[in-house]
Structures are given as C-alpha cells and as structure tokens.
Simulated scan of single mutants.
Amino acid sequence: MPKYIMWGTYCEDVLEKRSPYRQAHLDGLAKQKESGVLITIGPTKDITQVFGIYEAEDEATVRQLIENDPYWKNNIWTEYFIKEWIQAF
C-alpha cells in the first residue's frame, strides 16, 4: 500500500487554541494508529509545523482523515500538503 507524508502548519497561539479540541484530536489519531493507516505524526519542536506519515489506499483517504480532524475543522492546522513517499530504508 502506498505511503504518504503530510506537512502542515499550526495557527498562532496553538497551545492555547488547541485545548478544547485536543482530546478529540488525540482520540482520532489513536484510532487511525490502531487501524494501521497512521504510522506517525507530531509537531516540530517549535510547534509551528506538523509532520505525519500515513499508509493508505490513496491520497484522497489521507486528505479525508486530515480534513475530518478537529484540528483542521477548528483552524488549529492552517494548511497542509501531501506527497506520496517512497520509503527507501
């Protein structure tokens, strides 16, 4: 199955603004991880960007997961892009 990377950006004052949505966000990510579609995801140390690796049937599936995430729906993630990734090692 193809793998995809996702790079995105966070809003200003992310630590404060994410609070109401954080638990629902983490719960959703846990379900994605359990199902095998999410390999890993997390913020950069300065909390300005997010990086994730997914394994999915197609890019549309990854976009749907991202756009249904509470962080996207509530403008915590402000933009993202996806690229199909070839894991060399």
Results as ranks from 00 to 15, higher is better:
47 I>H: 13
67 E>M: 08
30 A>S: 01
43 P>K: 07
48 T>D: 12
89 F>H: 12
54 Y>S: 00
86 I>Y: 13
66 I>P: 01
89 F>C: 14
32 Q>R: 04
51 F>C: 14
54 Y>A: 06
40 T>G: 06
15 L>I: 10
38 L>V: 09
88 A>I: 10
37 V>K: 00
87 Q>C: 01
68 N>V: 10
75 N>M: 00
41 I>A: 07
81 F>E: 14
36 G>D: 04
62 V>F: 02
28 G>Y: 11
62 V>W: 02
48 T>W: 01
86 I>C: 11
18 R>L: 13
59 E>P: 02
53 I>K: 05
20 P>A: 14
67 E>G: 09
35 S>M: 10
46 D>R: 12
57 E>M: 03
84 E>P: 00
49 Q>I: 07
17 K>F: 02
1 M>D: 09
61 T>P: 01
82 I>P: 05
71 Y>P: 03
1 M>K: 03
38 L>N: 00
50 V>D: 02
47 I>D: 14
56 A>V: 01
64 Q>W: 05
62 V>T: 04
79 E>D: 15
42 G>V: 01
28 G>H: 09
17 K>D: 09
78 T>H: 02
65 L>T: 02
21 Y>V: 12
37 V>N: 02
58 D>Q: 07
66 I>C: 08
45 K>Y: 11
41 I>R: 03
40 T>M: 10
54 Y>G: 04
58 D>K: 03
16 E>C: 11
70 P>H: 14
33 K>T: 06
8 G>R: 08
67 E>P: 01
61 T>S: 09
64 Q>R: 05
70 P>D: 13
85 W>M: 03
44 T>W: 08
83 K>I: 03
40 T>D: 10
73 K>V: 01
75 N>F: 08
46 D>A: 15
55 E>K: 04
27 D>F: 07
58 D>V: 00
42 G>Y: 07
73 K>H: 04
67 E>L: 02
70 P>Y: 13
38 L>G: 04
24 A>G: 13
4 Y>H: 03
8 G>W: 01
86 I>L: 15
75 N>K: 14
73 K>R: 13
88 A>N: 14
63 R>N: 06
2 P>R: 06
23 Q>F: 08
19 S>W: 06
45 K>N: 06
52 G>A: 14
62 V>R: 04
35 S>P: 11
84 E>H: 08
74 N>G: 09
88 A>C: 11
85 W>D: 04
30 A>K: 09
40 T>A: 10
54 Y>W: 08
5 I>D: 00
46 D>C: 13
54 Y>K: 03
55 E>F: 02
74 N>D: 13
65 L>G: 02
52 G>C: 01
32 Q>D: 12
66 I>D: 04
65 L>P: 04
3 K>R: 11
18 R>K: 15
75 N>E: 11
69 D>I: 09
70 P>Q: 13
76 I>F: 01
39 I>P: 03
59 E>K: 10
43 P>L: 12
15 L>N: 10
87 Q>F: 09
18 R>N: 11
4 Y>E: 14
72 W>L: 07
78 T>L: 05
31 K>I: 09
89 F>L: 15
11 C>M: 03
10 Y>N: 13
41 I>H: 02
15 L>H: 12
67 E>A: 04
17 K>P: 03
25 H>W: 05
84 E>G: 07
40 T>K: 05
56 A>N: 01
58 D>H: 05
86 I>V: 15
65 L>S: 06
76 I>R: 06
10 Y>L: 12
7 W>L: 15
44 T>F: 10
